[in-house]
Nucleic acid binder design. Structure first.
Lengths: 106, 106
DNA sequence: GCACATGTTCGACCAACATCGAACGAGCAG
DNA sequence: CTGCTCGTTCGATGTTGGTCGAACATGTGC
């Protein structure tokens, strides 16, 4: 029981139900993450500005990853996270765009 | 305290945050309702096929209504529910279409 | 008035979730 | 090897959410 941290699990988008994606995108913190990723491309987890603890941050990244929304690349002790925009748009056409079109203010 | 049942509260869509809509659409039962409304137009609450109790059904209709997704019209003892497709598309362009484009199976 | 039908509301219950501090693991720099 | 950093995992906790049965409210028809 040790590979869990080194090899994050990323599902096939075909196996992800719509409810899981909607659920993942129904949290303000996770929406922030998605927006920042959309705007700035790949990013290191710790560099994103979020008003939550390390543990909570890690939790949200996991939810996004397991909903097929993000991909995680390992580089030493850092983790680079990016949007699976292509996969997502193939599975749920227009959904991510519609979400990203909404300004963060409301 | 008795008007609550007779005059359902429907918010201005401008006041509804994206998270509320995503949240409302992240439940399978509510997705079923939305799909049936999209396919068949206005419908009476009780006529939709849902494998839940009256109380649960009422709960889901309330969540959809308060998320600005549906409108409720009173007619005697019945309640006609319909999608606020126009309002929704104005507020969150493309979102409802993207959701409805996903087949119910998955 | 009196049933009847349609929905809502009220507790209650259990599952899921967001949050945190603390402990842990893995890689990197001395 | 020893710290240091980055991030995960582990409880624990409080909150929210879905579900139900039962009670209630409201309108319709006899």
């Amino acid at each position: 029981m040790l590979g869990a941290m080194t090899v994050p699990h990323e599902p096939e988008l075909a196996d992800v139900p719509l409810t899981a994606v909607m659920q993942a995108l129904s949290d303000e913190v996770r929406l922030c993450i998605v927006r920042e990723l959309a705007a700035g491309g790949e990013a290191v987890c710790g560099t994103l500005e979020l008003d939550v603890s390390k543990a909570t941050r890690s939790h949200h990244f996991r939810v996004l990853r397991e909903a097929g929304i993000t991909r995680t690349r390992l580089d030493g002790t850092r983790r680079y996270v990016s949007l699976r925009a292509g996969d997502l748009d193939e599975r749920f056409p227009g959904l991510l765009d519609a979400v990203l079109a909404v300004p963060s203010g409301a």
